[in-house]
């Protein structure tokens, strides 16, 4: 479990990082390393150059401005979990950060790294999809914004160009309800199923719902039929949505649980989310 040989660079600017990526098509960004370093040790990844982003000051920091929570790409999970700002404007996001692995991993792992890695069993991609978040990216050709829906292309696959660096993650904070929940066998394990949901509650009815599932499926995914079935319904009136969620997704099987099992426990996560919506609706 020792990595193969690689070159290492630690640039101070995003532009330098981009040009390093452009110069070496087998280069890989290092953004915390909590997934990449084990992959190197197992020799499942063998990049020729590691471009470490830890010395790029522009990539850290959390701001809340004009209804957008902006998280610098190198912001650690732990910083998000403990950020008074995040706890204030979107406590569900701080709680979602706390679902990730263990404190040691959260202290080094970053949101930009996790999003770019696009693990099918990771929390942030589901949160981004459900919140309709964006990533700001910069490449040698300039900067652009990619919506979560356009970013995640499959397991460990994104629409990032080889020379692009995620610089920040933007999450809209617009009064919509946020719910993130997960079934982990042991605390800190990858989720057997992860569910993120955002919605409006008005007059006891759910509207504008966005539902994302990870862990239970081959890649992070929205559940459009369940969303449609829930639209305009009261949380207690959700049997059609529950049926739709069970039917529309392609659940995965592995040694930790069959597809049937993952479907069942995803359903229970959805039921928990709906119960919570019912409670919120009662309090409103």
């Amino acid at each position: 479990m020792k990595s193969p040989v690689f070159a290492y660079a630690a640039p101070n600017t995003v532009a330098e990082a981009c040009s390093l990526l452009a110069d070496d098509e087998d280069a890989k960004l290092l953004a915390g390393g909590q997934s990449l370093v084990p992959l190197l040790a197992l020799r499942l990844a063998a990049p020729t150059t590691l471009v470490d982003l830890r010395l790029v000051p522009a990539l850290t920091g959390i701001t809340h401005d004009q209804g957008v929570l902006r998280l610098g790409a190198m912001t650690t999970h732990r910083s998000i979990e403990r950020s008074p700002l995040v706890q204030d404007v979107a406590p569900a996001i701080a709680e979602a950060a706390a679902l990730i692995a263990h404190p040691q991993v959260r202290t080094r792992g970053t949101i930009g790294g996790a999003v770019a890695h696009a693990d099918a069993a990771a929390e942030w991609p589901a949160v981004l999809l459900a919140m309709d978040g964006h990533v700001e990216v910069t490449g040698t050709g300039g900067s652009r914004s990619i919506s979560a829906g356009d970013l995640f292309m499959g397991p460990f696959m994104t629409s990032l160009e080889p020379d692009e660096v995620i610089t920040s993650v933007s999450l809209p904070i617009d009064g919509r309800e946020i719910w993130v929940d997960e079934h982990q066998r042991r605390h800190g394990d990858y989720g057997l199923s992860i569910l993120a949901m955002t919605y409006q509650l008005s007059d006891g009815l759910i509207t504008d719902v966005r539902l994302a599932v990870a862990g239970a499926t081959g890649s992070v995914t929205r559940a459009p039929e369940a969303e449609a079935a829930l639209e305009g319904r009261a949380p207690a009136d959700s049997n059609d949505a529950i049926t739709a969620l069970a039917a529309e997704l392609s659940y995965t099987s592995d040694i930790h649980g069959s597809a049937d099992y993952r479907r069942d426990i995803t359903t229970t996560l959805f039921q928990r989310a709906l119960r919570a919506a019912g409670e919120r609706s009662g309090q409103a």
């Binding site: 197992l42 066998r185 042991r186 605390h187 800190g188 394990d189 990858y190 040694i255 930790h256």
Partner: peptide, 28 residues
């Protein structure tokens, strides 16, 4: 409740890391 070394039908060991071979941690 947790630990299981799993071989597939060709005799490959599937559980070769502690991510897949679940040992009890403090919360167990």
């Amino acid at each position: 409740l947790l630990e299981r070394l799993v071989y597939d039908d060709s005799g490959q060991l599937v559980t070769t890391t502690l991510l897949d071979y679940h040992m009890p941690s403090m919360d167990f």
